[in-house]
């Protein structure tokens, strides 16, 4: 019971904050909602017994990446959003089509789900354990892990080069 309430509350928060991110006029507010959204997602992870990922989500996403966004927003100043010239016909049409497709898909899943309810989760208590994640990360996935670190290094160098004044 408690987990149902948790899920629906968090799901509602995630969707509401997500919507606010993409609809708010003021970009700084948008960034704030993005932080809130990420925190809600982190709580969802925690409720799914994945504490490690939850902590990483907060640390990297909310505490790191979004600060970068905030920086950029403050640097390029979005007090007067460049928004207002848009091309309504094309975008709304495309958005409508996309929304229709996804809604149809969701409806399909819901119907299929109602007809043939899947078995509940194996609910393996070990799945979320940090040790498991660490083991997988440092044994089977060692090479991807190292590649990811090289990617981060390259990205760091690239970002510095791009953001340099005399480009």
């Amino acid at each position: 019971m408690a987990d149902v309430i948790t899920f629906y509350t968090l799901a509602a928060l995630i969707l509401i904050f997500g919507l606010l991110v993409v609809t708010t006029r003021n970009t700084v507010h948008s960034v704030l909602f993005l932080v809130a959204d990420f925190l809600a997602v982190a709580m969802l992870y925690a409720s799914m017994n994945s504490l490690f990922v939850a902590a990483i989500q907060v640390l990297v996403y909310a505490g790191g990446i979004v600060v970068l966004y905030l920086f950029v927003v403050m640097l390029v100043n979005l007090k007067r959003p460049p928004e207002e010239v848009r091309d309504p016909a094309r975008q709304t049409g495309l958005g409508g089509v996309l929304a229709g497709v996804v809604l149809a898909e969701l409806a399909l899943i819901a119907v299929a789900n109602a007809l043939d309810p899947p078995a509940t989760d194996a609910a393996s208590s070990t799945a979320g354990l940090t040790e498991q994640v660490g083991l997988a990360l440092y044994t089977d996935y060692l090479i991807p892990f190292e590649v990811a670190s090289v990617l981060l290094l390259v990205a760091m160098v690239g970002a510095i080069v791009l953001a340099r004044r005399e480009l």
């Binding site: 640097l75 390029v76 100043n77 007090k79 007067r80």
Partner: peptide, 9 residues
């Protein structure tokens, strides 16, 4: 005024 509050200048 229309100048940005904090631009890169």
């Amino acid at each position: 005024d229309v100048r940005p509050m904090f631009d890169t200048d």
